[in-house]
């Protein structure tokens, strides 16, 4: 959590405002062919600013592991983006999106293991970050596998799918209740935590499996929106403004983009959203 009293905290928060503005203009420019590349650049500058200024947070006292992790991640990301074949780019976006979701899961999990007291509200948003992050991760992996034809691109359906999914959702909600209500650091809490993560991962798989390969771009856009929401929830858990703003920007723009893409492909948004909960309509 970032204090708002000291000068350095003020500088951090003002820079976050600037970064948020750069994200907004970046998205705006990304929507027009002539300015799209500039928009992407602006948003990258905003990201760099936000990251660099966060390092001045006085709660951060050791930098070795941060440096190693950032360098490792940068190298992997750089080569992934440079070496990927042009036709495989949507797959890569899906994979990157899943990795971002997993990062949100780890941030939320790390908050739980930090050993400090967490209020009911923080437990609730941490639960949401874990759930949405895990769904994004496993869902994106399935979408990636379908697009790259590592698994069959056809819609996978089985008897009792609707019942199974409803049961899964009910169990997740029940686990969520236990998660928020139970006292932390008890052995039973760890069981609830691990069960919840397992169920959320399964739910992500179940969400994407019944959707055919041709609809994967729409699904990836939807999962992209989810990863924004996961970041937003993590932002509430950490009381970090820039996570909340950028997360809800991505969440909202992702949903609207999904809906536009659905219209362009002659599909209804609810059909894609709840595909596991209704008989599947094959698309051509």
């Amino acid at each position: 959590m970032i204090e708002t009293t000291s000068t350095s905290a003020l500088v951090i928060n003002l820079t976050y405002v600037l970064a948020a503005a750069l994200f907004i203009f970046g998205l705006k420019f990304l929507g027009h062919p002539s300015t799209a590349r500039k928009g992407n650049m602006l948003s990258a500058v905003g990201m760099l600013l936000a990251i660099v200024v966060t390092l001045f947070d006085k709660n951060i006292i050791s930098f070795e592991w941060i440096a190693i992790a950032i360098i490792a991640g940068t190298i992997v990301g750089f080569f992934a983006a440079r070496l990927v074949a042009m036709t495989a780019m949507p797959e890569l976006v899906s994979l990157l999106n899943g990795i971002g979701g997993l990062a949100s899961v780890f941030v939320a999990w790390s908050t739980l293991e930090a050993g400090t007291y967490l209020s009911g509200f923080v437990m609730l948003v941490t639960f949401l970050a874990l759930l949405i992050g895990a769904v994004t991760f496993s869902g994106s992996l399935v979408a990636w596998a379908k697009l790259s034809e590592r698994i069959s691109g056809r819609a996978v359906t089985f008897k009792g799918q609707v019942t199974f999914n409803l049961l899964l959702v009910t169990t997740i909600v029940f686990c969520g209740y236990l998660f928020v209500a139970s006292p932390e650091f008890s052995p039973s809490f760890s069981i609830v935590l691990y069960t919840l993560m397992g169920l959320a991962l399964l739910f992500g798989i179940m969400l994407v499996l019944p959707i055919g390969g041709a609809d994967m771009p729409v699904v990836i856009s939807l999962l992209n929106s989810y990863s924004g929401l996961a970041a937003c929830a993590a932002g509430f858990a950490l009381q970090n403004n820039i996570l909340i703003v950028a997360g809800s920007l991505v969440g909202a723009s992702g949903i609207i983009l999904t809906s536009i893409m659905c219209k362009a492909m002659n599909r209804s948004l609810s059909n894609v959203l709840f595909s596991g909960f209704m008989p599947v309509v094959e698309s051509n």
Binding site: L30, S43, A44, M47, A231, L243, A246
Partner: peptide, 17 residues
């Protein structure tokens, strides 16, 4: 591009790391 923005989780991760 918006997927890259959702990588803002990095800022939250820095504080935990």
């Amino acid at each position: 591009g918006s997927n890259a923005i959702s990588g803002i989780t990095l800022v939250g991760a820095l504080a935990s790391s």
